[in-house]
Simulated scan of single mutants.
Amino acid sequence: MTARLTYAFDAYCGWCYGFGPALRQFAAENAGRIDLRVVSGGLFSGPRALPVSAYGHIPGANQRIADLTGVTFGDGYERTLAEGSTVMDSTAAATALVALRRQAPGRALELAGALQRAWYVDGHSLSDVGVHRSIAAQHALDSDAVADAFLDPATRAEAEREFRELRRLGVDAYPTLLLHTPTGVHRLGGPVTGAASLTEGLDRHLVPAV
């Protein structure tokens, strides 16, 4: 039996960055029995798409994320954070994920991680088409096709449909990992849950009741 999961993710979500290593380990260890879909949310969209300096809680939150998950934030990101003018636009980031995912549907989790590294390690704006060209090239994808898709309004519309889908599923925080079962949709773990605990949670839901 293959378990169907939805990963509610935002490329500008620090907790998603912290959760990434555990989720990737979980996905690799359970590759033969899960179907994992990565869907973007709109954490910083519309009126919330503001310069990073507008969110004064971020440095403190980053320290907590690092302490609890072990991830590190890169020098490029720290410089961008200190400079403060880069706008975090989750709609642009989600559009980029759609564009990248079209080239490699089975590698969505890997590509989501690449977007987060571009921001949280290198400090690159995820509104910059050149960043997405570079990610595509690094992952042996068609850079021109990714760039064209990123700039296509239809791709942005698809990303915005994903925002609405997550709202219908009741997602109100990121990261959220959802397991779809015959009895309903269940949340699996949380932002500081390790890979082994995620697998244990999956096992509990998949073992038939006696």
Rank of each mutant, 00 (worst) to 15 (best):
E160C: 06
T155G: 08
Y7K: 01
G70D: 03
H186W: 06
L166E: 09
A154F: 15
L141W: 12
T183I: 13
T193N: 00
D128I: 01
A173N: 14
R4S: 11
G70M: 00
D144I: 14
T95S: 06
G60C: 06
P175M: 00
T80V: 10
S197C: 13
A28V: 12
G46S: 03
D122R: 09
T69A: 00
V38N: 02
G130R: 03
S45P: 10
D172L: 14
Q25C: 06
G20E: 15
Y17K: 04
V38H: 01
A118F: 07
P51L: 14
D172K: 14
A147Q: 04
N30E: 11
V131W: 02
G14T: 05
I58G: 04
G84Q: 11
E78L: 14
T95M: 04
R161I: 12
L115E: 05
A93Q: 08
F73S: 01
G194A: 04
G184H: 02
L141D: 10
L115V: 12
V129F: 00
S40G: 10
P175N: 04
V52W: 08
R33T: 06
L141R: 01
G184R: 00
A31T: 13
Q103V: 13
F73P: 01
T2R: 15
A140R: 08
L111D: 12
L5C: 11
V87A: 07
I34T: 05
Q25I: 07
A173G: 13
Y55Q: 05
G70F: 03
